[in-house]
């Protein structure tokens, strides 16, 4: 466990060295947050309630999605693991006395830990300065951070699976892009799932992606209390566990593919 903590700490530090890139990225997130916020303002000028969402909820929602992208890592499907597969360096990794999935999960958590602050706070603060946002009390904050952590693990579990596809296809960018599109649409990232017609909305709730964006934000907005909140967190945990387990199940098959190719 100490080892994984150390790995995570190093990943955190590695990301904290890309200063200009972080600033530029936070700026971009903020810009997109503002554009989406104005769309929401226009929508809620006509309506008061969309699927249980009010104006203040919707505005908070869009800035939170921008604050969360980098932490949850929605755009980084493929990434490091796919790169290791592509270069064949994965063969070396697999011989190390470290759990492969655990190692990369630690790296990802270190990355997320850095991004939750560096890429998360700027858009949220900028949004709160210009718009009236719903900023919760200490209990919701704590619940949200727990929910966000599980969301990150679930997202890692999914991205790990996508990266393993690289074992079978030459170029990982196609699957990575398609994965990004699917996650963006079904997670509530591009638009709150509350906007979807009911059947689609329920379908989305049955998919793992809802645990990555929509649910943490609902927790932030205080939409779940008591037992309901516990149920939401448990549902997230369930998906995170399922995705991680799926990755573990696929990994040996994928590595056999490498051995068949002669490494």
């Amino acid at each position: 466990m100490r080892l994984y903590a150390e790995v995570a700490r190093r990943a955190f530090r590695r990301f904290s060295t890309y200063r200009a890139a972080t600033l530029a990225g936070a700026f971009t997130n903020t810009v997109f947050g503002f554009i989406q916020a104005y769309v929401m303002v226009a929508v809620f000028r006509v309506r008061h309630d969309v699927g249980g969402l009010h104006r203040v909820d919707a505005l908070t929602f869009v800035f939170l999605t921008q604050a969360m992208i980098m932490c949850v890592g929605l755009f980084s499907a493929g990434g490091d693991v796919a790169e290791r597969v592509k270069t064949g360096e994965i063969v070396v990794d697999l011989y190390r006395p470290v759990d492969f999935q655990g190692y990369w999960l630690a790296v990802d958590l270190g990355r997320a830990g850095f991004n939750v602050v560096a890429r998360g706070l700027p858009p949220l603060l900028a949004g709160a300065l210009v718009f009236d946002l719903r900023l919760p009390g200490p209990f919701e904050w704590a619940a949200f951070l727990a929910s966000l952590a599980v969301a990150t693990v679930a997202s890692f579990g999914w991205r790990f699976l996508v990266a393993l596809v690289t074992f079978w296809v030459v170029d990982d960018r196609g699957p990575a892009q398609l994965s990004t599109a699917v996650v963006m649409f079904f997670s509530g990232f591009i638009i709150p799932l509350n906007f979807f017609p009911d059947p689609l909305r329920w379908a989305c709730r049955a998919l793992p992606f809802v645990t990555m964006v929509q649910l943490p934000i609902e927790v932030f907005l205080g939409k779940h209390h008591g037992l309901d909140l516990a149920r939401v967190l448990a549902y997230q945990l369930l998906w995170a566990a399922v995705l991680l387990a799926a990755g573990r199940a696929v990994l040996p098959r994928a590595t056999r593919q490498v051995e068949a190719l002669g490494g």
Partner: peptide, 25 residues
């Protein structure tokens, strides 16, 4: 693969507009 996925990704922007207009006129 990338051509198709690029098509899908950029289509998402329009999907948002379409979804929004299911709620407002």
């Amino acid at each position: 693969f990338r051509l198709v996925s690029a098509c899908v990704i950029t289509g998402l922007d329009f999907a948002v507009i379409a979804v929004v207009f299911t709620k407002i006129g």
